[in-house]
Structure formats: structure tokens, C-alpha cells
Amino acid sequence: MSAQFPVARPRRLRRTPALRRLVAETRLSPADLVLPMFVKEGIAEPNPIGSMPGIVQHTRDSLRKAAHEAVAAGVGGLILFGVPAVKDAVGSAADAPDGVVQTALRDLASDLGDSAVIMTDLCLDEFTDHGHCGIVTEAGEIDNDATLERYARIAVAQAEAGADVVAPSGMMDGQVAAIRRALDGAGYPELPILAYSAKYASAYYGPFREAAECAPQFGDRATHQQDPANAAESLREVRLDLAEGADMVMVKPAGAYLDIIRQVRDSVDVPVAAYQVSGEYAMIEAAAERGWVDRERTIDESLVAIRRAGADIVLTYWATEVAQRLAR
């Protein structure tokens, strides 16, 4: 061989699809995916969400059908978001025994058994008439400690209805400790908590607020969700949640916070989840619809990036589709 040619040729391992598969450092598996699902009380047919093509607010029956489809594809978990028929200032429907989430939980627990992990978002924004994540004072501020009392009751209600994991997302100080005490006191010491530990005050949540009908009626959530400019703060939040009893931690959103996912993954020894949020979904779907990107390749690349950054679990609205494609 002439000295002018390279001895090291990394391209040798890229020559064929089979070789690339064999040496891939990061893999997607259906079991690592969690499907977020919206269920709305009082509708007769699934209600399409305009800003999230292909995603709907489910009826009780369509939720069960979609859950079966996801589980049949090998999706590892589902996470439920409820939209009640009636909202009030304290989110009474969030912990009502016959509330929309509790009813859906009993259906899915009966249908699915232990074939998938059924998670519940634990917050108040979908259930309050003001759209905020907690109890609002007369001055228009979120009362952190009063909100913790509501979260504790919601956690127990979800546990009683059959949740496998509760996932508090309100970013209230002390929320994990309050929920852990409530669950332990109600006889659910084995129920895991997936804490939304690093949840940013992000512009990427817009379509979700249409889906969950939870846009704030005044102000924003920057007083309790994290500033996108901060990174070290995330690690502090993670440490606090773990000290309070969290079993898993989450970073949300995912795509714009890959550096945070990696820092969290390197700093903890528990499972790390990342939520590929509604805005991430909507942007790819919109670009693909216009022919600007290859839809399937872009979806897969976005998910591989989240896994490569260190997420063990990925919440994504494409979970069923991707799981079905991986099984081909």
C-alpha cells in the first residue's frame, strides 16, 4: 500500500446497513418508549388536536383501543393526561374517585394487567379553571404549600385507581416528599414516583396546552418552572427530588435540553426519562408535511439523539408508530 493512503479507515464499518446496525452505539427499543395519551370527559368521538396532527383527545373507549395498539407494538408505558368536563379553582376533578383520569386508570389496569406500565401525570393545570399548576392566592400567586396538599390527595386517588407510577409535574418545592408521605401513609409504599425534576418554562409546550386545555388564564409558569438559561439549577432540583424519595427523574423538554439530559445521566444512578414534547412533535410534523424533511428519518434521528444524550426512557407521541416500525 502506498504511504499516501490512510491505514485507519473508519468507513469500513459503515459500508452496509448490516454493519452499521451491528456496530451502532445507541439503539431504540419499543420497551424504552412511553406514549402520552389525552382522555377527555364527555365527548362521544375522539377529538383531533389541530396543532398536533395525528393526536387526539380520546374518549374512554378510544383510549382503551389506542392503549391496546401501543402495548401490542411493544411500547413500554403509557402516561395519562385528563381533561375534565368541569373545572374549578382547586381542580376538584383531579382526585375525584369518578374523575376522568381515575376512570381511565381502572379501565386500563383491568385491560392491560402488567403488560405495560401505566403512569399518570400528577398536576392541577388540566383541572383548574385558571390553568395554573397549583392553588392561586388572591394576589394571583401560586401557593406552594397549599398545592402540596392537593398533590398528596391526587397521588392517593391515582394509586387507588391503579396507577403503576405517579409523575408529579408541577415543579412545586417539596412535592416529591409530600407525595411520598401520602402514598406511604395510604398503604402504597411500593408505588414509584417519576419526578419531573428538570422541567423548563419552555415555548415548546404550546400544542400541549391545546391538547390538555390548560393554557394559563393569566401570567405564566416561570415562577415555578426552570429558566431555560440555567443548567446547574437542574442538578440541584434532581438532587432534592431524589433526597425526597423520587425513584426516577425526568428532563422536559428533550430536544433543546440534550446537555441537561447528559448532565443528569452522569450525576445519578436512577433511571432518567426525557419528554419529547408537543412542540417538538408539531415542528417535525409540520416540516414533513411541507416536504422539508424526511419524516421517518427525522423522527428516528430525534429519538436516537435523546437516547444518546443519556435518557433511559423517552416519552414521545410517536411511541406506537416507532415501535411498530422497529418490529418490521
Rank of each mutant, 00 (worst) to 15 (best):
I43G: 08
I79F: 01
E149P: 04
L315Y: 07
D247A: 12
E296N: 00
D294R: 06
Q226A: 15
Y275K: 10
A72P: 03
E213Q: 15
P189C: 11
R15S: 15
T128N: 07
Y317G: 05
G245V: 03
T223M: 08
T16Q: 12
Y317C: 05
M1A: 12
A177M: 09
A319E: 05
I55F: 08
A31V: 08
V83Q: 14
S234I: 00
V156E: 09
M248Y: 08
L148A: 05
I284G: 05
V272M: 08
I118D: 01
T120S: 11
Q276P: 03
D269N: 14
V166L: 08
L183F: 06
V7G: 07
A309G: 12
H130Y: 09
A152G: 15
T103A: 15
W318L: 05
G140F: 01
M52R: 08
R239V: 05
E126F: 01
P36R: 14
V314M: 06
A85T: 11
P46F: 00
P207I: 10
L108N: 07
G91V: 05
V249W: 01
A18E: 15
I49H: 01
L22P: 00
V166H: 07
D164H: 15
D98H: 13
R209N: 04
D269T: 13
D173G: 12
A305W: 02
L78R: 11
V156P: 14
G255F: 03
Y204T: 11
A157Y: 08
T120I: 04
V136F: 06
C123P: 02
Q102C: 07
G131L: 12
A155P: 15
A319H: 09
R27G: 00
Y151D: 13
G99C: 12
A229Q: 04
A286I: 04
A186Q: 05
R21A: 15
A286C: 09
Q102H: 11
Y188S: 07
Q225F: 02
A96Y: 13
T147R: 09
P10E: 01
G99S: 13
H224A: 01
D98Y: 09
P53M: 07
A288I: 12
H58Q: 15
A31P: 11
E233W: 07
D145E: 15
A246C: 02
